[in-house]
Structures are given as C-alpha cells and as structure tokens.
Amino acid sequence: MIRLHGLGKAYKVHGRMRPVFTGIDAVFRPGEAVGILGRNGAGKTTLLRLIAGVEHPTSGWIERSMSVSWPLGFAGAMHYSISGADNARFIARIYGKPLAETVDFVDEFAELGEYYRMPAKTYSAGMLMRLGFALSMAVDFDCYLVDEVVAAGDARFADRCRAALEERRGRSTILFVSHVPHLLRQFCTSGAVLQDGRLTRYDDLDQAIEAYGAH
C-alpha cells in the first residue's frame, strides 16, 4: 500500500516558491491499476517522482509498504556511458537479483539486438524506453509507476508492456499518468484527476475521464 499524507511540492521560480500541488491525500492499494489524468504541467510527472522517492516533497510525507519502481519514462534510472547489458548487471547488483538471469531477461524483453552490448548513449529514445521498462520488469516491483511515454512506443512494444503489466495485475499496483484518456483504458481500472493542485479519485475510470473532459 502507498499512502500520501498531505503531500505538497513547490519549485523555486524566479526566486519565489511556486506550488505544483499541495495537501494531496490518497491511498493506492495492492492490485489497483489507477489512471491519473492531468493536463501538461498539472504535476503528473512530479507526483510520480515524489511517489518514487526521486524527488522529495516540500510538505507532507509518503508511506510505502511495498516496493515501488522508479518512474518509467524517457529519462533516468540507467547509466548512459555503459551498455544495456552492463546496466542490467548494475541493476541486478543493486536490487540483489541473479546476474546472468537478469541480463538474459532484459535482453529478451527489450529486444535491442546487438545494441544491447553498446553504450546506452547510442540508443534512440524508443530503445532507452524499452531498456528502462525491461530493467524494471527484471527487478519485479510491487508497484509500477508508468509515464505515458512508455505506451507511446511502437505498437509491438506497447503490447508487450501491456501484457507484462496485465500479468502482474492482482499482485502489483500500477499508477499510470497520462493526458490521453484512451491510453488509460488499455491499462487501468480506476482513475484520478490531477488538476489545479488537487488529486480527485474516482472508483470508475470512466467517471474520471468524464470529469477530466468536463474541464
């Protein structure tokens, strides 16, 4: 379970603290697949980063009683000067997973071909995304934080992500942020809308999409 207690984040803009959101309270339980809708700049990515612990909140706190992935998107979590395979070894060491199996798993999942042995800085954005997603699947987290860009990959990989997340449904929690409602329908069961610095939960995804569309 992940519980947000009065979560707030502000960034310094032109010398003044400008809040992205304040006082967010929410609970995400095991087995939930929550689609979080919000427009560009609403703070979706910031929210994922806080839940992942990549950045720290300005106010409030987060209670995590499950392992939480890093936010899966374009950037982060890997080292760009070493190869995909070396990244897999690094992740395996960090999270205490068997080395050889992790390297094979990521190779198979990410389908990078010979690029798997090349430095990650030579990868295209799509390849980095595939590597990042495969690495996170190899660690096997209880909760996955997914940025919509993952689903923006080609159809084949999007299917793969969907299958992998589907397979984890029931034991894993999935938080998926997007500003495109139809993407969420493929992955999520319930919804939430992040708007004007507030997060509103809806038990039914369609309600969330309706509320989001009304604005």
Binding site: G53, H56, P57, G60, W61, I62, E63, R64, S65, M66, S67, V68, Y95, G96, F141, D142
Partner: peptide, 17 residues
C-alpha cells in the same frame, strides 16, 4: 514494511515517522 530487502524498507522521507 513487508520485507527487509525491499525498496520500501530503508530511508524514510522527511517528516515521516
């Protein structure tokens, strides 16, 4: 906390009990 080896175990955030 559900397990010692999990990512959630160490390092609480600011203000967290």
């Amino acid at each position: 906390m559900t397990g010692a080896g999990q990512a959630g175990a160490p390092r609480p955030l600011a203000g967290q009990p």
